[in-house]
Simulated assay, not measured.
Amino acid sequence: MVASDLYFVDPNPIPGQEGAERGVRLEVRLLERGPLTGTIYAARPIVIDRPVWRADLLGSASGPAGNLDRAHHHPRFDDWNPGARVFGEELSADPLKWVAGRLSDLDGLLAEAGVPGGQAGPNDPAQLRSAVPDIMAAVHRLLDGVAKGELAVPPAEAASGQLTSARVSWL
Rank of each mutant, 00 (worst) to 15 (best):
P125Y: 07
V47Q: 15
D69M: 09
G117L: 13
L57E: 01
R33S: 10
G88F: 06
V47W: 14
P154I: 10
N67Y: 10
R25H: 13
N12D: 15
P154V: 11
R129T: 14
A84Q: 10
T37I: 09
N123G: 05
S92E: 14
A137T: 12
G83D: 14
W80T: 08
W80H: 11
E32Q: 14
H140K: 15
P125E: 11
R76N: 06
P11C: 15
T37N: 05
N123R: 15
E90A: 13
I48Q: 10
A113F: 05
P15I: 05
P35M: 04
L103Y: 02
A20E: 11
F87V: 08
P125F: 13
P75M: 02
R29D: 07
D134W: 10
K97R: 14
P15V: 06
G121C: 09
L106G: 04
V115W: 08
L57S: 06
E112Q: 15
E150W: 00
L109D: 00
L143P: 00
R44M: 11
G59S: 07
T39S: 12
L128S: 12
G121P: 01
P133R: 00
D107Q: 13
D105T: 03
D49K: 14
A111Y: 07
V99Q: 00
A152L: 04
L110Y: 09
L26E: 03
G114A: 08
E32M: 13
L151A: 06
G66L: 13
V153M: 03
H74M: 14
R25I: 15
V132M: 03
V99M: 02
R141N: 12
G117D: 10
L96W: 03
I48N: 04
G121L: 11
L103E: 01
G117I: 15
P122Q: 10
P95G: 11
P116I: 07
P51K: 03
G16T: 12
V52M: 11
